[in-house]
């Protein structure tokens, strides 16, 4: 299968006047064409930072990025020039942001904004051409034609999020990043939109990264998962494997803290005690050791390396095999 994005040893460091914050450390994963990978983790775990680094949307003044993110087998997004990156934007990689209510300009009609975005890469496109394209995309996300001439405030949150998804599809990109794209919606709308996204993917053969803190979103709409904690990917692999048998204590904790998807009880919901560690100090041992109930002396002294397990799974835990 064709590789769309391969991230290798990605580090993102925020520089402030007094200290450095290591927001993402040694991240590595691969996404193939047609994959949909959910990146999960609690607030502040660095999942959005990871996405922004790959999209090169961070503030360059305060951020330092090392490592590689190879897109479409031959282009490194991290070392690429700004001009080359602009050429790639929306045409091959697009993004849907978290709060749909704020992701479009409030004083311009959808039409004006879509025309401007479309013409970044197709400066000569006619109004009719753009209208036709957008309306076919609006149909795809189950919105009526009239949405095209509305202002953002004239729509509901769900409609706006669908519009944002339609806009992200304008140039048929190879990769779409959903940065908490359904978080602000109610559960019913979220469910519908997830279903539509999965349907769409089948017809368009698109590849997706889904940044979320909601395990159920990953379970419903993704085939791969990357569990992130305090800037590190603790476990990556196929959704069906990991949900069946999580190998990292943190993944186990995450899964236990969400209600079962399809009715029935699977015991009491538990939370993971403690808080995220301070990201400005580098950690000698396992980053999760402080909160892990299975941690032993070795965990505090030695950083666990990725253990490759079957079906492309990677786990960063000394005791992965024993779980």
């Amino acid at each position: 299968m064709k590789e769309i994005l391969r991230v290798e040893d990605l580090n993102v460091t925020y520089q402030t006047k007094s200290k450095s914050i290591y927001a993402v450390r040694n991240a590595a994963f691969t996404i193939n064409q047609g994959d949909s990978m959910g990146v999960v983790g609690e607030s502040g775990s660095g999942k959005s930072t990871l996405a922004m680094a790959v999209l090169r949307l961070h503030d360059e003044k305060y951020t330092e990025i090392t490592g590689r993110a190879v897109f479409d087998e031959d282009r490194d997004l991290i070392s690429m020039s700004q001009t080359d990156m602009d050429e790639l934007r929306w045409k091959e990689i697009s993004v849907v942001f978290q709060r749909a209510m704020n992701s479009l300009s409030p004083v311009h009609r959808i039409r004006q904004q879509v025309e401007d975005i479309y013409r970044i890469h197709e400066p000569k496109a006619s109004r009719e051409e753009i209208r036709e394209r957008m309306i076919s995309l609006l149909k795809l996300v189950n919105l009526p034609e009239r949405v095209y001439d509305l202002y953002p405030h004239e729509m509901s949150g769900g409609m706006l999020q669908r519009t944002a998804i339609a806009i992200s599809l304008l140039h048929n990109p190879k990769l779409i990043v959903f940065d908490e794209a359904t978080t602000a919606l109610d559960v019913v709308t979220q469910g519908q939109i997830l279903k539509e996204i999965v349907e769409m993917e089948k017809t368009l053969n698109m590849t997706r990264i889904m940044i979320t803190h909601d395990m159920s979103v990953v379970a419903e709409s993704c085939n791969k998962i990357a569990v992130m904690y305090a800037g590190e990917l603790l476990e990556t692999g196929m959704v069906k494997d990991i949900f069946k048998k999580p190998c990292h204590p943190y993944t186990q904790g995450l899964i236990k803290s969400f209600p079962a998807l399809k009715g029935g009880h699977h015991g009491k919901l538990t939370s993971i005690p403690g808080n995220l560690p301070d990201l400005s100090v580098s950690c000698k041992g396992c980053i999760f050791a402080d909160r892990c109930d299975r941690a032993e002396k070795k965990c505090f002294e030695e950083k666990p390396s990725y253990k490759a397990m079957q079906n492309g799974r990677n786990v960063a835990c000394h005791f992965a095999e024993e779980m």
């Binding site: 949307l57 942001f97 709060r99 409030p106």
Partner: peptide, 14 residues
Amino acid sequence: NEEFIQTFKAAGMP
């Protein structure tokens, strides 16, 4: 600093 500015940046608008 509004979010919609991010959208246009992500779309590669000058």
